[in-house]
Simulated scan of single mutants.
Amino acid sequence: MNIKRILLGVVFVGLISGGIFAYMLYTSFFTPNTSFNAEEAFVYIPTDASFEDLEECLVPFVDDFKSFESAADKKGYLKNIKAGRYKIAKGMNNNELVNSLRSGNLPVKVSFNNQETIQDLAGRVASQIEADSVSLLAAFDDSKFLNAEGFNEANKLSPYIPNSYEFFWNSSAQGFRDRMLKEYKRFWTDARIEKAKELGLTPHEVIALAAIVHKETAKIDERPRVAGLYLNRLKSGMLLQADPTVIYAIKKESGNFDQIIKRVLYKDLELDSPYNTYKKSGVPPGPITMPDISAIDAVLNSEKHKYYYMVANVENFGYHMFAENLSQHNRNKEQYIRWINAQKIKR
């Protein structure tokens, strides 16, 4: 009789203990454990994150980190913390949180536009992915990479075509660079390469010329006409005489790319720089900015005309007045000179 009572007591205690354990396990895994009011939040876990790093990332978003830790440990996640950008939804339990952090790495949209320097590009990209500007700049400037892919110091901006791209947030600097090289090669289709050849230009020269077109006009519908003008000059052996190249030369010479120059002076035209197209013939050795795709395609699909000169149209701001000869150009130029003097723009 006593043995039966003991066995029944053991069974009873076991059931109670099992129930408590099951309840604790259920609570650990399946009780909602988020602490934010929005419908969703994003957690960014750095590469090679330690447990302490993970805790720092998650504490602002979970109600009870200790219960999360317990569940994550039981599921083996703490031995394999994964870097990336993860979405967690309001009301998620620990089981759902761990599953999301284990396999839900989401990409980010990385966008960059017309940066003038490789340093600007590195800073812009670093604000959108994990890699910092120092590591990105080192990857962009890597001489082995540049030499192997046919780039140099002057045209190292060329592989980066302004657009929006999907990347994982934890992409490395080298990973970003190499992906952009693939995008560059994909951009230069056989059709585009053939059009460049018909113009007597290499892809590097097309981008350098497109950068001038981009700087000359923000009006996409005018870019093919401006491109045609510069191609006419190249074909006839004329100097490009593009003011944006002089402005770039001034900035590069001074090392100050933040300065704003609204007026090019006659003395500026004497600056001895490979980018000064008032003194140097042909296309500059590299782009003076990162041209939009619209500017690149404007060069490849330029308007056929007989214009060799242009000046800003002050009656239709953003656009230009075009001329086939110098006398006509000088007449067009008078309206611009009167306007700029009236504005008292000295520089």
Score class of each variant (00 low, 15 high):
residue 314 V to A: 13
residue 178 D to Y: 04
residue 327 S to G: 05
residue 254 S to D: 14
residue 125 V to R: 06
residue 319 Y to H: 13
residue 137 L to T: 09
residue 232 N to M: 08
residue 140 F to W: 11
residue 48 D to N: 10
residue 270 E to A: 01
residue 29 F to P: 05
residue 282 G to K: 05
residue 79 K to H: 09
residue 220 I to Q: 06
residue 265 L to H: 04
residue 306 K to A: 11
residue 237 G to R: 05
residue 92 M to G: 00
residue 135 S to Y: 07
residue 182 K to D: 14
residue 68 F to I: 00
residue 100 S to A: 12
residue 107 P to Y: 02
residue 56 E to W: 03
residue 102 R to G: 00
residue 239 L to C: 04
residue 194 E to Y: 15
residue 5 R to A: 15
residue 253 E to M: 11
residue 88 I to Y: 00
residue 154 A to W: 10
residue 107 P to K: 01
residue 154 A to I: 02
residue 310 M to T: 08
residue 337 I to E: 11
residue 292 D to Q: 11
residue 159 P to Y: 10
residue 201 L to F: 15
residue 327 S to R: 14
residue 39 E to R: 06
residue 150 G to E: 13
residue 152 N to S: 11
residue 139 A to T: 05
residue 239 L to Y: 11
residue 82 K to D: 00
residue 45 I to G: 02
residue 52 E to A: 08
residue 347 R to N: 11
residue 261 I to L: 06
residue 194 E to K: 14
residue 84 G to T: 01
residue 44 Y to L: 02
residue 11 V to W: 12
residue 100 S to C: 01
residue 149 E to L: 07
residue 280 K to Y: 12
residue 99 N to S: 13
residue 12 F to H: 01
residue 121 L to T: 12
residue 232 N to G: 01
residue 56 E to G: 11
residue 86 Y to A: 03
residue 259 Q to T: 05
residue 314 V to S: 14
residue 214 H to D: 07
residue 111 S to F: 09
residue 88 I to M: 00
residue 176 F to Y: 15
residue 205 E to W: 03
residue 229 L to S: 09
residue 317 F to I: 06
residue 148 A to D: 14
residue 237 G to Y: 08
residue 114 N to W: 08
residue 260 I to Y: 13
residue 155 N to R: 04
residue 60 P to M: 12
residue 149 E to G: 02
residue 96 E to P: 08
residue 122 A to G: 03
residue 162 P to R: 07
residue 328 Q to W: 06
residue 281 S to D: 12
residue 339 W to S: 08
residue 231 L to Q: 08
residue 162 P to A: 11
residue 273 S to F: 08
residue 245 T to E: 01
residue 75 K to V: 01
residue 309 Y to R: 11
residue 64 D to Q: 01
residue 39 E to F: 02
residue 233 R to I: 03
residue 55 E to V: 02
residue 278 Y to C: 12
residue 71 A to S: 15
residue 250 I to P: 13
residue 231 L to H: 08
residue 276 N to Q: 11
residue 23 Y to S: 06
residue 77 Y to E: 01
residue 111 S to C: 06
residue 150 G to M: 10
residue 148 A to Q: 12
residue 7 L to P: 01
residue 19 G to I: 06
residue 288 I to G: 07
residue 277 T to P: 13
residue 44 Y to S: 03
residue 162 P to K: 05
residue 25 L to I: 06
residue 75 K to R: 14
residue 205 E to Y: 01
residue 132 D to I: 13
residue 119 Q to D: 03
residue 6 I to N: 03
residue 12 F to C: 15
residue 87 K to I: 04
residue 171 S to C: 12
residue 183 E to M: 09
residue 124 R to C: 05
residue 22 A to T: 13
residue 151 F to Q: 09
residue 289 T to G: 07
residue 124 R to D: 05
residue 161 I to E: 11
residue 137 L to E: 06
residue 24 M to L: 15
residue 259 Q to E: 12
residue 132 D to C: 10
residue 200 G to H: 13
residue 244 P to I: 01
residue 211 A to F: 05
residue 47 T to M: 14
residue 247 I to W: 10
residue 143 S to T: 15
residue 225 R to I: 10
residue 227 A to P: 04
residue 201 L to R: 10
residue 288 I to H: 09
residue 318 G to Q: 01
residue 240 L to S: 02
residue 296 I to F: 12
residue 150 G to R: 13
residue 323 A to P: 07
residue 18 G to E: 03
residue 309 Y to A: 04
residue 156 K to V: 02
residue 275 Y to P: 04
residue 179 R to N: 02
residue 344 K to I: 11
residue 247 I to G: 07
residue 205 E to A: 14
residue 124 R to V: 10
residue 319 Y to V: 02
